[in-house]
């Protein structure tokens, strides 16, 4: 009986860890944003997109290798015309949601704290059941931008940082997913 209970608890814990982000803060702030990026790429879509990479896409081979280990990427990013469009309460709510059980905070960086132009960055990682890297969450709060990234699957920070990505037809400063409802 105890064994079954333990299995049930472990299963529930796994489910709790794997549950998707709600990020209601983003839904609430969406209307205030001038630019919205909302990407939700599952494993199939990542593989499909990777199969269309060409030589002009930077390190296409590296990207393809990187994508092989991924289960999905979720990105929500809001850009605002002016500062002060989100509050500390919003950040606290995001940090609480992103740092759910199973996710370990590994990097916490704050700049200009209690001053204008305050920037916050947090990175959480999750280890899988076999001790492998299971995922990563990033939260970045800048005066005019608020972003959350969730990457599920096997990925290394070094690989991500060393990608030489060129996107000639996408202007990230004013990204292509304006008020993206796709």
């Amino acid at each position: 009986m105890k064994r079954y209970l333990a299995v049930a608890v472990l299963t529930c814990a796994q489910f709790a860890c794997a549950q998707s982000l709600k990020l209601s803060v983003f839904e609430r702030l969406r209307e205030k944003a001038s630019d919205v990026t909302d990407l939700n790429l599952n494993k199939d879509l990542l593989g499909f997109g990777a199969s269309f990479l060409s030589k002009g896409d930077g390190d296409a081979a590296k990207v393809k290798k990187l994508v092989e280990g991924l289960q999905g990427i979720v990105i929500k990013s809001l850009e605002f015309e002016k500062e002060g469009m989100y509050s500390n309460t919003d950040i606290t709510a995001l940090i609480a949601e992103l740092g759910a059980p199973g996710w370990n905070l590994v990097i916490s960086a704050d700049e200009n704290k209690n001053r204008k132009g305050h920037e916050i960055s947090r990175i959480w990682i999750r280890t899988g059941s076999n001790g492998e890297f299971g995922g990563m969450r990033i939260m970045s709060a800048e005066p005019r931008e608020l972003s959350v990234i969730e990457i599920m699957g096997k990925v290394s920070l070094e690989d991500l940082q060393n990608l030489n990505i060129h996107i000639p037809n996408i202007n990230l400063g004013n990204n292509g997913n304006k008020k993206n409802d796709e």
Binding site: L41, I73, I167, I170
Partner: peptide, 16 residues
């Protein structure tokens, strides 16, 4: 899908 993938990786790389 390719554009979205590249955009996702670019944003991630930039934030990291």
């Amino acid at each position: 899908a390719r554009e979205q993938l590249m955009m996702a990786l670019k944003i991630t790389e930039r934030k990291l």
